[in-house]
């Protein structure tokens, strides 16, 4: 019961944070609130027994993405332009999608149900197999690196591709751009 109450409080905090991300126009505050959001979700993951996920979210989601966004802010600008009107179209899209998703949750097993169908299929095999095949205490690590090792290799390929993309975008510029930039710098100087 205490666990449920903790997650309710954390989720409510997160809803408030997300609302202020929507409302605030100063991008620095928005980015800091994103960090707060990630940290709160890491706390929620710990509460829901996903300690590995909480660790990754706190380090990567809360740390690295916030730093990346602050770096981008330093290279761009801090203030968001105030839009002229409230946008009706996106609001309708969000409300309709949200209603459909809530309707979908009505069929889902209740929170914490030990008889949920997702727990009955391959999960017991993985839990038993970890002790016998992999002899590794952490089941998440065993599945990630051993049972699903090829998927993790694929993930690494995705990250490598994204890293190459970032390098291509930011480091290898076309020569004309370089000349323009040099011109600008000289103008400023």
């Amino acid at each position: 019961m205490a666990g449920i109450l903790i997650s309710l409080v954390l989720l409510t905090f997160m809803a408030v944070t997300a609302f202020y991300v929507l409302r605030l126009r100063h991008l620095f505050s928005v980015v800091m609130l994103t960090g707060v959001f990630s940290l709160l979700s890491a706390a929620l993951f710990t509460n829901l027994d996903a300690v590995d996920v909480a660790f990754t979210e706190a380090a990567v989601g809360g740390g690295i993405s916030t730093v990346l966004m602050l770096g981008t802010l330093a290279l761009t600008r801090r203030r968001e332009k105030v839009p002229e009107t409230l946008s009706i179209g996106p609001l309708i899209i969000a409300l309709v999608t949200g209603a459909a998703l809530v309707y979908g949750t009505l069929d889902m097993p209740r929170f914490g149900d030990p008889n949920a169908p997702a727990l009955k299929h391959v999960v017991p095999e993985y839990i038993e197999g970890t002790a016998n095949d992999v002899s590794m205490p952490n089941i998440v690590t065993a599945v990630l690196a051993s049972y699903r090792g090829y998927d993790t290799l694929g993930e690494t390929a995705v990250i490598f591709t994204a890293g190459i993309g970032v390098l291509l975008l930011l480091v290898w510029r076309r020569e004309e751009d370089e000349e323009d930039e040099d011109g600008e710098k000289e103008d400023r100087a």
């Binding site: 996920v53 839990i127 995705v158």
Partner: peptide, 26 residues
């Protein structure tokens, strides 16, 4: 134990998510 399979999936998704965020910011 809580179901470890979503944890594995999401662990992967978080890291890939940061990679795509970095690409978007670039």
């Amino acid at each position: 134990f809580s179901n470890p399979l979503p944890h594995v999936l999401i662990l992967t998704a978080i890291v890939v998510g940061v990679a795509t965020t970095a690409l978007g910011l670039a």
